[in-house]
Nucleic acid binder design. Sequence first.
DNA 1: ATCCGTCGATCCGGCACTTG
DNA 2: CAAGTGCCGGATCGACGGAT
Length: 303
Amino acid sequence: MQCLIWFALAIIMLRMIRDLDMTLIRTFVTTADKASMTAAANALHLTQGAVSQQVKRLEEVLGQSLFERDRRGLRLTRSGERLLDKARRLLRLNDEILAEIRGGAVAGRVRVGVPYDLVGTLLAPVLKAYAEAYPQVEISLVCASSPELAAALAAGTIDLAVIEERVGPSPGECLLIDRLVWVGARGGAARLKRPLPVSIVADTCAFRPAVLSALAEHGLDWRTVFENGNIDATTATVRSDLAVTTWLASTVPADLDILSDAGLPALPNFSVNLHLPKHATQPAAQAFAGHIREGLSRYRQAA
DNA sequence: ATCCGTCGATCCGGCACTTG
DNA sequence: CAAGTGCCGGATCGACGGAT
């Protein structure tokens, strides 16, 4: 009898809950992202048991099962899928409110200079993370070759720049060092043609002097196929086997080949450097610099 | 078939913190 | 200050996959 009373009370209490607990929402989103309670527990610095309990509490509050406990993992139920997007929005709003009210919010505008080949590869996750962390900052992205970005920074038309340079002394801060490699279509024949068809994204490209110098030293005849400053066009040219190109190893698309054994001249390593203006930088730019350092640190460790 | 490891669920006692 | 809440660490259980 007493059990029945307690059960009834619990049901009444649950029906009275009108507010979602942000802690439970965060745990739910993390668990969904990781597809594992153990992994979510590690990410949230909790124990697996605590995560299990929080998910269960949220399911009780909502009166819906959010996960299908399945064999060796978790899968979102339809209710879970419906909740996930809204839960993310709730978290973003929550974080935004906290940042604003606490007064330390970074706001304003940041103009970021990024080389063509890094914007969609190494820096894409950095840009995404920054935009999520500082939704009130307006980001202006300037894509250009590294020499053009250096000039723009000196002219004060951008607030910070990521610049690719030959490894060596630089006023910039080295974020990572990567191999410059020859790239061609998978199983393609362009690498064998003479003169070698070479596509370089732009004639001001930072890699161009090093590539031309290597070709000259190797005595290899070559010709330019496409140079209009468009990375997508260059990628399409290479993918179509019309030409080979040179990229940093960590930016090579998975469906293209790194031509390490094609008789092409060895290329030097390049440094990806962060350049900030000499005068004081805005908080939004400082925060962006921090995101880039953190975002590229994993590549630095992997290299 | 059996053993071992992993994962999630659940329970327990203890602890820290909050609330009334 | 007592009661309530939530977490932790530990233990145990069942389900399952992989190796032997």
